[in-house]
Design a protein around this nucleic acid. Sequence first.
RNA 1: CUCUCCGUAGCUCAGUUGGCAGAGCAGCUGACUCUUAAUCAGCGGGUCGUGGGUUCGAAUCCCCCCGGGGAGACCA
Length: 571
Amino acid sequence: MELSEQEINRRQSLDELQKLGIDPYPADIYEVNVTAEEIHKNFPADNSLYQDISIAGRIMQRRIMGAASFTEIQDATGRIQLYFKRDEICPGEDKTMYNIVFKRHLDIGDIIGVKGYVFITQMGEITIHVKEYKLLSKSLKVLPVVKEKEDKVWDAFTDPEQRYRQRYLDLIVNPKIKDVFVQRSRLINSMRSFLNGKGYLEVETPVLQPLYGGAAARPFKTFHNTLDMTLYLRIADELYLKRLIVGGYDGVYEFAKDFRNEGMGRYHNPEFTQMELYVAYKDYKWMMDLVEEMVEKIALDMHGTTKVKVSDREINFKRPWKRLTMFEAIKEYTGIDISGMNEEEIIKVANKVGVETDPSMGKGKLIDEIFGETVEPNLIQPAFITDYPIEMSPLAKKHKSKEGLTERFEAICNGKEICNAFSELNDPIDQRERFEAQLELGKRGDEESMVLDEDFLRALEYGMPPTAGLGIGIDRLAMVMTDQPSIQDVIFFPQMRPEKKPQVSTDEDFIKLGIPKDWVPVVRKAGFKTIVELKQANPNKLFNDLNGLRKKMKLNIPALKIEEVKGWMEK
RNA sequence: CUCUCCGUAGCUCAGUUGGCAGAGCAGCUGACUCUUAAUCAGCGGGUCGUGGGUUCGAAUCCCCCCGGGGAGACCA
């Protein structure tokens, strides 16, 4: 690849450092005994602390004033200023370590370790007075320099494409991003400790599945060579976890990566994280209480309060949350009671509220669409929607008392579903019929309808206790809890199209033509990325251009002769 | 997949009606021993996303393609 001027400078510094006997990538452990955060926290109260410290981090900022310099380094906890003084770094006659190594060959982005003591400058900044330093890693790429003063930010690194593709850069330069992922981790820890506290068992089930099931979604397909069969990446872990309830565990849960082969956008990444929980001898009402308790606790653990700021609103997770049946909710937001209607009447309602319909949609799907269009975006504060139609809930138990409905709920918050739960269907004969109804939908053209899983039915035939099940979207919950507008902001490496690589020939290809090694970068600079392009060039013009560049770039290599250039063309 | 906006130096962005490609930061050279968006003087840095077209002349106008954002579609 072609290097920019600054990248060439850094590689030259690397060489110079090595000539001075400095290993730019030393292998030894560098012992650190304090963090930037600890110093900022404790030093103001007790100035006798931190008088013999060792700390390491990345250089983020340099202000050089002749024989003294201020540098900021950033460790995992934050930034701290360093003070370098020439005669302190170099007590003897030899000032190389300051004048040459520090001033000339260190750059923003390099990682160094320093030893010294903490003091406060005349400007009142807590600073480390450096007695000695060591280069720990030389940085060859130029970091974007973001400057900040009193909440004003200059030259922020904001391009979403680069931020997502090079998340490491985003994390280095935008410290608030690092925080989001710390928060995400705390969310998961909070949930896990809540579930462990209840005595449930964390388990793992297959990602590669011969049949996919447990949700309405299109799968990713892959192939196992030895078994000579198609496998699917799981779209949900439901059917496996229920097999474990059949096996006799009281409560099992899994933090699972699931994969759905569908569109992408602010709320959808092809792979996403879900926590699914199944508890024996419970029902969906019991599960609602658990969800409220768990999410309230997460908010408290993360923010110390149940109130969470999300964009320009405040969402309060304090129990109890509002509870509405699906029909009540649709009636509340549209004024239409669809509870007694047949499919034809519902199609009319759907069209009236702006939902497009097509023949593949069953009654359940239609109701779901009407709900999604009219109700869901309006539910900002956490709310439970209960009692979903049977057609859209093929794994949920029929309602105890309401005909045509199931014992199912979703929690909605900030206009989006965050979880889905039901009293699990444990009647194997009913379950078989529901799967068959799904196959029927599939024949009507519904590509997300479920397939029939015989082994799962066999498990149910041995008998599954009444069970409550829950799936909760970790990414979406993290979006709400960390106030991020897009799912890509709570996933380290969101899915993206591959970066296109420009077509280039290797250095070896050029050298094979007889081009001296030192001339290869010049040839590239002249605009020839491939040997094919080069061979089409006019040798006289090429000869002139290359020697011209040699002069312009002040290269200390012998000038080319026209015979040489012609020689490359003939090979 | 559709609509829409965007792609210019390492980063953030200007670029008029089509007329020599600009600024700040970063970099390099020099000055400066408590600075903090350090300062001061000087210098270098570009395949204007890619390919085609119109034109005497294209970063600018037109078309194709690539990548991204937003809104939909699909989806939970």
